[in-house]
Design a protein around this nucleic acid. Structure first.
Length: 597
RNA sequence: GGGGUGGUAGUUCAGUUGGUUAGAACGCCGGCCUGUCAAGCCGGAGGCCGCGGGUUCAAGUCCCGUCCAUCCCGCCA
């Protein structure tokens, strides 16, 4: 139907007759000459209908409207002197139409197919086929394709096998809420859609496949965010006979290739490496945005000499006082600071203290501090004239969380976050366990198949389980995992671990998690049994493809890089899923609804 | 489950102190127009003011509830 793609037509084609087809991006009818900007995936080229060429043809062109699908045969010409359009790649030429075929018409549009639309997301998703025609969105979809292709090429080159794992699988007790699928042939029984292929990929290692990967959909029935959808895609891989550093080196190289292939960005520096404790200490969170500084400083040791009761009380209760230097913001008014305080309180802090560095330290609480103490504070933050110090005093986790979010906010306000900058970091040495205050028990921070660090193995094995759960501040909390997260620009884009490959260790893990042998057997028995048949040392990682592509594309939501995303209520406005089903379908499944109106 | 913001023409929005026939831009329809590319000029159609209650002589506007969208908290091994 066509000899050329619209975006490929150029000066090299002048004088030749070509056939193109696409959508009418825009039409301009001058009564005499008619211009149509014809668009296909490759780009846009201007088609000219002139009354001198063919009256009938010219008449037909008058009837063309936006988004009509047409096929045009015509001659490529240089545009007349002074009419070139430098804002499009094909702007030097135009196609003088000799023949037009309307392949399909188009109704009046719910919104303009244009790079700059301000139609609501709901409307865009309802007519996603129109939304996806917009070059900016197509660009994202193409970046996604190129990234996925780069991962496949790279992993294929490293001897990985792409192996599919079941979508209809088993519900697991830990972790996110499962999406359930009723089994017709086993009434009352349910499959779960996988939250990740975790257990199957480990079994593939026991199976001797050695290197597995898959670009795979995962499902979690939790509430949505800008960077969270109920179905999302992981680049999932697992390797045998490797150490943590092997995987980290491999992933680093793979991601660099993907950035190069997908968006032409060469990442040259090594990815930063931070332990979990370093990250918490310096940034207050385990996914720091390293595009800017504003590092947190613990000042508990300095302010203990003050007479400021809020700080002293916090310290006496085992809390900490931490802060950051908002460079150059001493000009903030009382109202600015009150607003900022309210924002930090919204994060969960009881309050926020501030000090302006203006000749002397200016602050409502300055009087509680000696001159030497104030000097020490200024020094701790490397503060200069005109800086603003912000403090939060609270339990360690609260102070860290609030300051981490405050740090991101100040990074934005100070315009420290530049586009086109990519700062990667590995976060390592995570705690193996996390205390669940509500349920008064330890949980696996990563997942229950994560291996402890060898240095901490003795403690892992020797803790008296009879003392559970009194160990919340005990040795067990200090056992570290052979786990690693990869962080990019403040987003967690992947995580993995070296797994437990010995039955005794795995049994011990379940014991510490307070999962009895019967329950462990019922839920994970097939993995536990497999571990007894010569499981090799192995480990792996999963990358969040959606988030990674979102960052590559410079988008602010993963919905912009997913062809058919769901809204925050987890519905698909295009298909209207989910929806009620027939009584007959429910009956076949043995399901009765019990919905309280 | 909780908090913030929003919902008025096909779309994006404005709409004063509650007061006559709810406006603008773009889009759509018709006409004019031979070099535009955000084309231009003239004319026209188009509204359950998210939905349901309430207050009032009178509600787009005030009150209560509810639904939807979005951002965040909880949640997400």
């Amino acid at each position: 139907m066509r000899t050329h793609a619209c975006g490929d037509v150029g000066v090299q084609d002048t004088g030749t007759t070509i056939r193109i087809a696409g959508w009418t991006n825009k039409w301009r009818d001058h009564g005499g000459v008619v211009f149509i900007d014809l668009r296909d995936r490759s780009g846009i080229v201007q088609v000219v209908f002139s009354p001198e060429i063919d009256a009938e043809l010219h008449k037909a062109a008058h009837r063309i409207r936006n988004e009509f699908v047409i096929q045009v045969e015509g001659e490529v010409r240089h545009r007349p002197e002074g009419t070139a359009n430098p804002s499009i790649p094909t702007g030097q030429v135009e196609v003088i139409a000799k023949k037009i075929v309307v392949l399909n018409e188009c109704k009046a549009l719910p919104f303009m197919v244009d790079d700059e639309t301000d139609a609501s997301e709901h409307l865009r998703y309802k007519h996603r086929y129109l939304d996806l025609r917009r070059p900016v969105i197509q660009k994202n979809i193409i970046i996604r394709h190129k990234a996925a292709r780069a991962f496949r090429e790279y992993l294929d080159g490293k001897g990985f096998l792409e192996i599919e794992t079941p979508m209809l699988t088993k519900s697991t007790p830990e972790g996110a809420r499962d999406y359930l699928v009723p089994s017709r042939t086993n009434p009352g029984h349910f499959f779960a859609l996988p939250q990740s292929p975790q257990i199957f990929k480990q079994i593939l290692m026991v199976s001797g496949l050695e290197r597995y990967y898959q670009i795979v959909k995962c499902f979690r029935d939790e509430d949505l965010r800008a960077d969270r959808q109920p179905e999302f895609t992981q680049v999932d891989l697992e390797m045998s006979f490797i150490k943590r550093e092997d995987i980290m080196a491999l992933i680093e190289e793979m991601i660099k290739k993907a950035f190069s292939d997908a968006i032409g960005v060469e990442i040259t520096e090594h990815f930063a490496k931070l332990t979990y404790h370093e990250a918490m200490d310096r940034y207050g969170c385990d996914k720091p945005d390293l595009r800017f500084g504003l590092e947190l400083k613990n000042v508990s040791d300095i302010v203990k000499d003050s007479s400021f009761n809020v700080f002293l009380d916090t310290l006496s209760k085992g809390g900490i006082i931490k802060g950051l230097n908002a460079k150059g913001l001493a000009g903030y008014s009382r109202k600015d600071l009150d607003d900022l305080t309210r924002e930090v309180q919204g994060f969960g802090a009881k309050g926020m203290a501030w000090m302006k560095v203006k000749g002397v330290v200016e602050s409502p609480i300055a009087k509680f501090f000696s001159e030497d103490t104030l000097k020490a504070l200024v020094k701790r933050f490397d503060a200069e004239e005109g800086d603003l110090l912000l403090f939060v005093a609270d339990k360690e986790n609260v102070a860290n969380d609030c300051l981490a979010r405050l740090r991101n906010e100040m990074g934005r306000r100070l315009d420290l976050i530049k586009g086109g900058v990519y700062r990667f970091a590995w976060i390592t040495d995570f705690p193996l366990f996390e205390w669940n205050e509500d349920e008064k028990r330890f949980e696996a921070m990563h997942h229950p198949f994560t291996s402890p660090m060898e240095e901490d193995l003795e403690r892992f094995m020797s803790v008296e389980t009879s003392e559970l759960p009194s160990f919340r501040a005990s040795e067990l909390a200090s056992v570290r995992a052979q786990a690693y997260d990869i962080v990019l620009n403040g987003y967690e884009i992947g995580g993995g671990s070296i797994r437990i490959h010995k039955k005794e260790l795995q049994d011990r893990m379940f014991q510490l998690l307070n999962i009895g042998p019967e329950e462990a057997n019922e839920k994970f028995g097939f993995l536990l049994e497999a571990l007894e048949y010569g499981a090799p040392p192995h480990g792996g990682i999963a990358l969040g493809l959606d988030r990674l592509v979102m960052i590559m594309a410079g988008a602010s939501s993963i919905r912009d890089v997913i062809a058919f995303p769901k809204t925050q209520k987890a519905v698909c406005p295009l298909s209207n899923a989910p929806s009620p089903v027939d009584q007959k379908q429910l009956k076949e499944l043995g399901i009765k609804l019990d919905i309280v109106e």
